[in-house]
Structures are given as C-alpha cells and as structure tokens.
Amino acid sequence: MEAPIRVLMITSEWPTEKSPFAVPFLVQQVDFLRRAGADVDVFFFRGAKNPLNYVKAWCRLQWEYRSKWKQYDLIHAQFGQAALIPWPKKLPLVITFHGVDMLGQLSDTGQMTWRGKLLVWLGRLAARFADAVIIVSNEMRQNLPKSMTLHMLPTGVDLASLPELSKDEARRQLSLPADERLVLFVGNPKDPLKRYDRAREAIDALNRRLPVTLVLGWNMPHGDIIKMMHACDALIVTSLQEGSPTIVKEALACNLGIASVIVGDVVERLAGIEGCEVAADHAPETIAAALEKVLLHGGRVKGREAIQELDERVITDKLMRIYRGVTRHGRPTYQLSDRPFVSTERR
C-alpha cells in the first residue's frame, strides 16, 4: 500500500481562541484532504502586517521542523504571505493565493496601498520559485506573469453536509421575525473592504419603497451562518475586494437569491441564475435596485445545481492531483475515504 502524501500546510489565517470561527473554508479543506488520505499538519502564525512576526515565524519553523523535513512530501502555503516562511526551500512548494495577497490591499477609496503593492510584489517573487501556483479567481492572473502556469481552484462547498431547512424553521431556530423581508450581510462590519456601511445605505434606499430588514452574520458558528441563509430572503454583497467569496457559493448551495456588486468571481458564479442580480456600479441606489429585483423574484433560486463543480470533494480531487504532480506520488486518481473527519488539531 502506497504511503499517504504528507503535507505541511503553512498559513497566516487559522481559528484561534479570539477568532474561533475564522477561515471555515480552510479548516474544511484540511479535513477533506485528510479524508482523502493525505497526512496534513498545520503550521499557523499571525502576521498582523508586522515584519517582526514573519521573522519570528521563520525562526519557529526552522527550530520546530529542522529534524522533520524528511517527514513531508511538500509544503502548501495558504495565502501568499505564508509562502515567505519556508525558505530556503527544502521541499516542493504549492501556493494558494486567496485575494488581497495577489490583488493587493486597497484603501477605503479603492486605491492600492503601499503595503498592498509590497504584498503583490512579494507574492509574485514567491510564485516564481513555487512548484505549483493556485489562484481562486481569474482576476488574479493580471498580477502574475503570463508565462506562468496557474491552477484555477476556487474554494469549495461541502454540499453533502448542508442542512435542509425551510425558511420558517430556520427563522424559528434563530429567533428571527417570521413576517419580515430579511436580507443577510455576512462579514466583519468593521472591515472597510466588506463595506457594511454601504450595505446599510443600500437597505435605507430600498426601504423608501420596499420594507426590508438587514441581518448581520458575523462572529458566530458556521452552522448558524448557514441557517441564516435558509432563513433570509436574499444575500447582499457590497465588498470592495474579494478573491472567490465562499459565502456566495454557500448561499447558492442554499438556493438563496443574491444581489452583489462586481467583485472577485461573483459575476461568473451568478451568471444565468434567475433570481440573482449583479449591480452595475457600487452606488447605494444601484445596489438597492438589484436587491429589489432579487426580493421581488420571490422564492428560492436554482443555485445548488449551478455549483456542483465546486463541491469540496471535486475540489479536493483536483488539489490532490496537483500534489501528486509536484511529488513522487504519481497516481492519476483517487477515491475519497469514507472515514470520519479527523480533528484539525494536529500540531
């Protein structure tokens, strides 16, 4: 029996005691990789835009893993900044860029900051030395060399685990009003790139002709966010910058109508789905008009059938093929294990 692929995953984003609900899509990916038979360890550090934290992470990695490198087949850096840590490169390196790390940090006015430019430059540099580069949306291609081979692999959705709830039952479980039009916003309301204030402005504009209530989904268990998608009548997305927003794919999996600005890969995801609308610009009234169309459409949309290719099992299969392509594990296909999930607490 062939030994499993052994992966050291390095990431600057991971759940902590202060942020227990962070990056659920990444935790899910690690769980599915383990179900697929990969042996995954997670090395987490918090960069917090402080160069000293990166130096500390580099030192800790060298110290903790100096006798362990031969235990792994590859390193997978999640987010471009994590690719700065495993140097000098001792193993095949896979990098996944998720958004800001390759699109650059924007200011509140939409201008690239100097930190954003530096992050993109460092990401491009790391990508040149990587054995495989993964992007989650086509928008990122503009900041990478055209000659570079890129793998397009958006974050996935675990379709099999999503509960089936009626709107009435979901509202009852969450103690939400039964007789109001509810619009869901998911994201940190203090994050200027998510633009919660813009969502509120759009809701205020819409309320002049159609009564709606904005519901905030933030800092709560992922399962409750999914319940909110079943409970609400629409999702509003007003972000200034995204890579491939998982929340949009999860809303589609729950057949929830979406009104969104043009950001990330949202246009591609919503194309052809009746009951979903893309605002032509970021003005509150334009967003309100798109949201009004979604709400007046009524009922659920046919979103789940549109994202079958983004099922986490399909995404994991593609990721495992990339792993095999950069290591000595050359099997062309594999089958997902039926074993229960293994805890992500491996460190």
Rank of each mutant, 00 (worst) to 15 (best):
I273G: 02
H282A: 10
K293T: 01
V301L: 08
V278E: 01
E277W: 11
C232E: 07
R300H: 09
K249T: 03
M220N: 11
M229Y: 13
L240D: 07
A289H: 12
K227D: 03
A253N: 10
M228E: 00
V294L: 12
V267D: 14
L291Y: 01
L295W: 05
E277L: 09
K227V: 06
G272Y: 04
E250H: 03
C254Q: 11
V237W: 04
G275N: 09
V294W: 10
M228W: 01
G272A: 14
G272H: 15
V266L: 01
M228H: 15
I247K: 01
I236C: 00
D265F: 11
N255T: 03
H282T: 12
A283F: 03
H222P: 15
P221Q: 09
I247R: 02
I236G: 01
V261R: 05
P221I: 00
A251M: 09
A271K: 12
A231I: 13
E285Q: 12
L296Q: 14
A271M: 06
G264Y: 02
A253Y: 08
M220H: 06
A290C: 08
D233G: 12
E285W: 05
N255H: 04
H297K: 01
G223T: 15
H297T: 00
V278G: 01
E285I: 10
R300S: 07
K293Y: 02
E268M: 05
A271G: 07
Q241P: 06
P284V: 06
V237K: 00
L252D: 00
A271Y: 06
A251L: 09
M228R: 13
G223F: 12
P284K: 05
A290F: 15
Q241M: 07
S244F: 12
A289F: 04
A279C: 02
H297F: 07
E277K: 12
S244K: 05
T238E: 02
M228K: 09
D265Q: 14
T246K: 06
E292Y: 09
P221Y: 06
I262H: 08
P245F: 03
A234N: 06
H222Y: 11
M220Q: 14
A283R: 14
V266H: 00
I262Y: 03
I236R: 03
E292M: 11
I225A: 15
S244D: 01
C232Q: 07
Q241E: 09
H222V: 04
L256C: 08
G223M: 12
D224M: 14
A251S: 13
C232G: 08
A251N: 06
N255V: 05
V261K: 10
G298Q: 06
I273S: 04
C276A: 06
L256G: 12
E250L: 08
V301N: 02
E292V: 03
E292P: 04
A259R: 04
I236T: 05
D233E: 09
T286M: 03
E277T: 13
A290V: 10
V294E: 08
L295D: 05
L252I: 03
T286K: 06
D233Y: 05
N219D: 15
P284G: 04
D233V: 01
I258F: 11
V267I: 06
V266F: 04
L235N: 10
E285N: 08
